[in-house]
């Protein structure tokens, strides 16, 4: 077990180094002089030179890379061009808002997605199946920004059921619409995988055995089919987390939700490169850490996962 965990941790560290390297390359090929961008309009030669000195921009590339790497590994992501504030600190301040939204969305998407998938599989080719799979296909086809805009227009602006934008400090009802909008895509993916996985499992011999034993249909489905069908769902859900939660950027932007997504979008609009770099890197790091955690938990909880 310890070996397995260590192997996973080592792999995660190597991926983290890759993530930091890609972020460095992004900054490096970026056109323009960071020192000038930092100073903005009021750039005289003297201060440009001193900033270049301070950022280490006058050093050769590999030295810059090593400095960047060692700083990043210590959590130092530099200072914003616009606000002059520490990037890591700003990101950590925004983390709770994104975490609340993200976890709510994941929770909603998992519960509803699995439920819809199971119902669809059990009532295959019925109207209910057709309906939920159509909604799921809509869910993976609609861009998050379109979804968010339509949701705001229909439920906030026209029907007035929810506030147009804002944070939970103004009331918990501010959470509902953004969380649902964010949840739709992962929900759709979960429902589709659950359906096909359930269809596959229901043809297995052990289901026939369970039925032959005289178990109630509910027990057959809940204890035997679903337990086994959920494995691929959990794997897919964790490995596509980055893709599914990518929506957080547009959702937070449109709902004006003060999280990391809004921070990233704002810095993209303002071309605040250290902040863009920081949010990009931070999202990837979070994803790697969650995957590591899922892998280890998986091994701990499921004795069938072979640890080799």
């Amino acid at each position: 077990m310890l070996n397995y965990a260590l192997k996973n941790i080592a792999q995660a560290v190597s991926i983290l180094i890759g993530v930091i390297s890609i972020t460095f390359i992004l900054m490096f090929i970026m056109p323009g002089d960071p020192a000038r961008m930092m100073l903005g309009q009021r750039s005289d030669e003297e201060s440009v030179r001193s900033i270049r000195e301070e950022l280490g921009l006058n050093k050769p590339v590999y030295t810059q890379y090593i400095i960047f790497m060692s700083k990043a590994l210590r959590g130092d992501l530099g200072v914003s061009y616009i606000t002059n504030r520490n990037v890591s600190k700003t990101i950590l301040e925004k983390l709770p808002a994104t975490a609340v939204l993200g976890f709510t969305a994941i929770f909603i998407s998992f519960i509803i997605g699995v439920f819809a998938g199971v119902i669809s599989a059990l009532k295959q080719n019925s109207f209910l199946d057709f309906l939920s799979m159509s909604v799921a296909l809509f869910g993976i086809s609609v861009p998050q920004f379109v979804l968010a805009l339509l949701a705001v227009f229909i439920f906030s602006a026209t029907l007035g059921w929810f506030p147009i934008a804002g944070y939970i400090t103004d009331g918990w009802n501010h959470l509902i619409l953004p969380a649902l909008a964010l949840a739709l895509r992962p929900m759709a993916i979960t429902a589709r995988i659950t359906r096909s996985s359930m269809l596959d499992v229901m043809t297995k011999d052990y289901i026939r055995t369970a039925r032959a034993k005289g178990l109630s249909e509910f027990k057959v489905i809940y204890k035997h089919a679903l337990r086994n069908a959920l494995n691929p769902v959990i794997t897919a859900a964790s490995s596509s987390l980055a893709a599914t939660l990518g929506g957080v950027f547009f959702i937070e932007y449109i709902f004006n939700w003060p999280g990391i997504g809004l921070l990233a979008m704002d810095s993209i609009m303002k071309l605040d490169f250290p902040m863009i770099q920081g949010t990009v890197m931070f999202s990837a790091v979070i994803f790697v850490l969650i995957n590591l955690l899922v892998d280890i938990m998986y091994a701990l909880l499921d004795p069938k996962v072979k640890i080799s």
């Binding site: 991926i15 992004l26 900054m27 990518g246 863009i276």
Partner: peptide, 15 residues
């Protein structure tokens, strides 16, 4: 894979 793809796409376009 670790990067949220939409954010990576945006970051590359910005660059």
């Amino acid at each position: 894979w670790a990067f949220p793809s939409i954010l990576l796409v945006i970051a590359i376009s910005v660059v």
